[in-house]
Design a protein around this nucleic acid. Structure first.
Lengths: 129, 129
DNA sequence: GCCAATCGATTACGCCTGTAAACCTGTCGC
DNA sequence: GCGACAGGTTTACAGGCGTAATCGATTGGC
């Protein structure tokens, strides 16, 4: 049942997360590649991306592979794991660990469209089988 | 439709959140009251609670009412608003704003018990009417 | 072979957060 | 009336985060 590398040790910050998204979207990437995909959108400059990448490497969320004189960066944790981890954190912190409460909250606060409801219904049906 | 005081300006930190929970649970409270409910559990001392309360007041998340020489603290934002806000933040950040994806994630990662499923189903049915 | 461009590493720095000690002041007991 | 205490305010300080400049090494062009 080894449930897929569950090593999400140190917390990933907001800015670092943006970098992770780029890498999850496509990897390995060089620092320049990453910058190309996030710098404009976030108003960052290269040095910022370099720093974030280093920190992610230190945290063990990203690993490097030498390619001549530069590095290629690859995530070591799966996006699904990260996302699952963060979701559970939220559910624990705000909903006493009861996902149904989260759902109720989203429902009650308008946040669910008809499409969402339909999709959730479909998933529910699937889980029943 | 004034959707209930939506003033969640500054972000509330983790530690501050613990204090908010105490106040949401029961308010108004004095600083000592708050400490009584969270200090042991979190391993805090009075000064820490005082600091957190001050910061929350500065952030406008809590307001004070004088009671003789001391203060009574009361939340100015509703728990439901805070929780909704944070939930939406997560959905936006990690699931491209699609709540159904969050649901799918929770489903796929074991996190949903039969009870959860039953409850969600019930809520769904309710929303349909 | 030497210079400029390229890259990663090191250093910087202000703000927020967690956690508290120190300080000031009003008050209640004696 | 005076000292101990309760309670709020100020100050502190280390670590994380956002953002970046600077340094040092490598290398491709000429």
């Amino acid at each position: 049942m080894a449930k897929r590398e569950d090593k999400i040790g140190e917390r990933i910050s907001e800015a670092e997360h943006a970098v992770m998204e780029a890498l999850w979207d496509d990897s390995p990437l060089t620092a320049a590649d990453v910058c190309e995909r996030v710098c404009e959108q976030r108003g960052w400059s290269m040095p910022t991306v370099k720093t974030l990448l280093s920190r992610l490497v230190t945290k063990g969320a990203v690993e490097t592979e030498a390619d001549g004189r530069r590095f290629l960066y690859t995530p070591t944790i799966a996006r699904a794991d990260y996302v699952g981890h963060e979701s559970r954190r939220l559910v624990d912190r705000l909903f006493g660990g009861r996902p149904a409460s989260l759902f109720a909250q989203l429902a009650e606060s308008e946040a669910l469209t008809d499409q969402d409801l339909a999709e959730i219904e479909r998933l529910l049906k699937e889980l029943r089988s």
